[in-house]
């Protein structure tokens, strides 16, 4: 336990992006499941309207986030790796109950463990694009926008809608586990505090040396 310093692990933009995205996705889930007929709160029409607005905002946010990831090189943090993946899995299944230490060292340059890398990579490369694409198709399905211009012609909305719904269920399941896994940091609140303030008490900033060799 040496060299522990308070390190800035999440930059201002990253935190803004994270929380804005969290808020939008929660809002989209809330309105989306109402549109799906799961419950009635805003009323169908308003639920659709707000869902669409939030969707556009999310697209703008994602565009900024992609730019940020590319320009800062942060995207590299999400490249999946098999190294340590078994150890990480073992930690969540057994080690965590025995007070074992985290098998992966968290640093500013390597802030994701291999399971996180895999999850977030899948989220960003498969699930969110699939949700977005099916959502956009849903919006522009067969409809000439405002009665003026033509657009996509799909025979039925069913496939698009069912894919969009399936994505929503997957995202909701992610959300449940994600919210829980927040508590599995060094302390119960360490991860949450880091995402709110940007700072976490970490040892060093570099990635683990053996990762390089």
């Amino acid at each position: 336990m040496k060299n522990i310093k308070e390190v800035l692990i999440y930059s201002g933009f990253e935190r803004f992006w994270h929380w804005a995205q969290a808020g939008l996705i929660l809002f989209l889930a809330f309105t989306g499941f109402e549109i799906h007929g799961a419950y009635s709160f805003l009323g169908f029409g308003d639920a659709v309207r707000y869902h669409n607005i939030a969707a556009y905002l999310l697209i703008v946010l994602i565009a900024f986030a992609i730019f940020w990831h590319l320009t800062t090189g942060e995207w590299r943090q999400y490249i999946p790796t098999t190294k340590n993946i078994a150890a990480q899995l073992e930690y969540y299944v057994f080690g965590i109950f025995r007070n074992a230490p985290h098998p992966t060292k968290k640093t500013a340059l390597c802030k994701l463990n291999p399971l996180q890398k895999l999850t977030y990579f899948s989220l960003k490369v498969f699930l969110l694009p699939a949700t977005l694409a099916s959502g956009l198709l849903y919006m522009f399905y067969r409809y000439p926008e405002g009665g003026t211009t033509g657009s996509l012609t799909i025979e039925t909305l069913r496939t698009t809608a069912v894919i969009h719904t399936a994505c929503a269920f997957a995202l909701a399941a992610f959300l449940i586990t994600h919210l829980y896994l927040i508590t599995t940091g060094k302390t119960v609140t360490a991860n949450l505090k880091a995402m709110l303030t940007g700072f976490e008490d970490l040892e060093g900033t570099e990635c683990e040396p053996e990762a390089e060799k």
Binding site: T156, R158, F169
Partner: peptide, 11 residues
């Protein structure tokens, strides 16, 4: 397929 009414039972 009408949103709010229809769904896939499997999904």
């Amino acid at each position: 397929y009408m949103p709010g009414r229809d769904y896939s039972a499997a999904v």
